[in-house]
Each structure stands twice: as structure tokens, then as C-alpha cells.
């Protein structure tokens, strides 16, 4: 039943038409949310008692960090889907997500470094959270190079899927690194189980920026996957009709 459902709703053709239909709504909605949240966060929230104005980089750093891990998890789920049910769309999604995951991880690292200078007095520290995020960035680059080194797409998809699944072990390490090791990086301010330790005045624009950034990154993934589908299915008649 699951197999039937997946094959029915995850055909590249159906996906492409659905993406084209909903893409612009997601994009404009996310853009508005993100811009409003940024304006709210930058101009209408008070200075932090300890960090002053430097904390405002959270409206970029936190969404990027959150997305860098979430995108890897999405790749891992796609990999499992591809290896178990042989869904082609899942394979296209893996390679479509990888460069965007690398980009968000890079943004997280750079924005963290910029924030580190006034806060910690250093732009880099070899602590567990920062190092494991750097490892994630290198993982993304490794995945992209592995896929690009094979001309046989099907083989590349399978190998990539296996590596993504093995590499997913890094995600809980990143997530829990601030709890398992004593790190310079602060522990999570927003969790699913506890009350947020961040003031609501700063929390609401932060939540907005996460939702907006998430939507914008989803749009990038949709565009990238659209390109992958058109590239890989270019010989199919429906692609010629679509183009």
C-alpha cells in the first residue's frame, strides 16, 4: 500500500507539475515572512543585556544552522526511500538537496564566526559543535564529488544513498555536541520539550525568520530538483511537452 502510494504521488512528472503550481506561493509567502521577521528582529527588538546588538545575527545563524541539519536528514530519508522502494524522485532529491545543504552549512559557519568575534573574542574555536558542523560541510562536499565522479547516474545514486545513510550518524553528534562536551557554543535555547530560554520579544521574530528561511530554502530545493528532473528525464516525451 505504501509502495503504491509513493509510486503514485512521487512520479517525477506529477512532482514537476505540482512544483510549478505551488512554487510561487511558497516563495512569496516565505519571502514576506522572512523580510518582516528580519525587520522586526533588527529594528523592533531591544538590545541584549550581555551581547548588545551582535546577537541580532541569530536571525540568519539559527535558521541556517537548523536547515543545515534538517536538509541532511531529508537527504537521509530520501536515501532510505530510494534504496527500499526504488523511487527515482527520491534519488533526484538527494543530489538536489546536497549543494543547498552545503550552502546553508557554509552560511551557518560564516555567520557563527562573525558572531564569535564580538561574543567570544575569536572567530573560530575547535569545540565540538563548530567542528562537527565543519565536518557536516565537508560531508556535503564529499557527497557532491562522489556523485559527480560517476557518469552512470543510477550507480551514482545508489552509492550516494548509502554514504548519506552512513553519514547521518553525524547529525545526532552535532545536535547533542553541546550537551555531551563542554563547549564554548551555548546549548539550545529552543527545544521541543522545555520552555524556550530566550525572551519572547526575541523569540517571535526568530521563529518567523526560521519559518521564512525554511520556506526560501525549500524553494531552492524545489528549483534544484526541477533542474535534476529535467536533466535526467530529458529523453522522456512528457519532458519535451513540458518544456
Amino acid at each position: 500500500m505504501i509502495k503504491k502510494f509513493i509510486h503514485q504521488f512521487a512520479s517525477p512528472k506529477t512532482y514537476l507539475y505540482q512544483v510549478s503550481r505551488f512554487y510561487k506561493y511558497i516563495f512569496y509567502f516565505s519571502l514576506v515572512i522572512y523580510i518582516l521577521s528580519i525587520i522586526w528582529g533588527l529594528f523592533f527588538t531591544p538590545e541584549d543585556f550581555v551581547q548588545g546588538n551582535s546577537y541580532r545575527i541569530i536571525y540568519l545563524h539559527v535558521p541556517a544552522s537548523f536547515l543545515s541539519q534538517t536538509l541532511y536528514l531529508a537527504m537521509a530519508i530520501s536515501s532510505i526511500t530510494y534504496l527500499i522502494w526504488r523511487v527515482k524522485l527520491a534519488a533526484y532529491l538527494i543530489i538536489a538537496i546536497a549543494p543547498i545543504g552545503a550552502m546553508t552549512t557554509f552560511i551557518a559557519l560564516i555567520s557563527g564566526s562573525i558572531w564569535g568575534i564580538p561574543t567570544w573574542g575569536t572567530w573560530w574555536q575547535w569545540d565540538a559543535r563548530i567542528t562537527s558542523t565543519l565536518i557536516l560541510f565537508i560531508m556535503y562536499l564529499g557527497l557532491i564529488s562522489l556523485h559527480n565522479s560517476f557518469s552512470n547516474h543510477e550507480k551514482a545514486d545508489k552509492l550516494l544513498s548509502w554514504l548519506v545513510i552512513v553519514g547521518a550518524v553525524n547529525i545526532p553528534i552535532i545536535k547533542k555536541s553541546v550537551d555531551w562536551w563542554s563547549t564554548l557554543h551555548q546549548s539550545a535555547s529552543i527545544t521541543l520539550t522545555d520552555k524556550p530560554s530566550i525572551d519572547p520579544v526575541m523569540l517571535y521574530p526568530l521563529m518567523g525568520s526560521i519559518i521564512g528561511f525554511f520556506g526560501l530554502v525549500i524553494c531552492l530545493v524545489l528549483l534544484s530538483s526541477k533542474y535534476q528532473i529535467l536533466h535526467r528525464e530529458k529523453n522522456k516525451s512528457w519532458v519535451k511537452d513540458y518544456v
Binding site: 567542528t131 565537508i138 560531508m139 562522489l146 565522479s149 548509502w162 552512513v166 553525524n170
Partner: peptide, 28 residues
């Protein structure tokens, strides 16, 4: 070994590149 299996006919550099990040937590 996983890295070499992944890059079986592509040289060991690629294999090392893709699996080295997994070895770094062990170094930590």
C-alpha cells in the same frame, strides 16, 4: 574500507575524501 568500496574504480583519494569526515569524530 567503506570509502574504497564507494570509489572502487575511481581511485582511493575520492574514497578518503568522502569517509575522512566520518573519522574526524573518532579523532576528537
Amino acid at each position: 574500507v567503506l570509502g574504497n568500496a564507494l570509489s572502487l574504480n575511481k581511485g582511493s583519494v575520492l574514497g578518503a575524501l568522502v569517509t575522512m569526515p566520518l573519522a574526524l569524530p573518532v579523532l576528537i
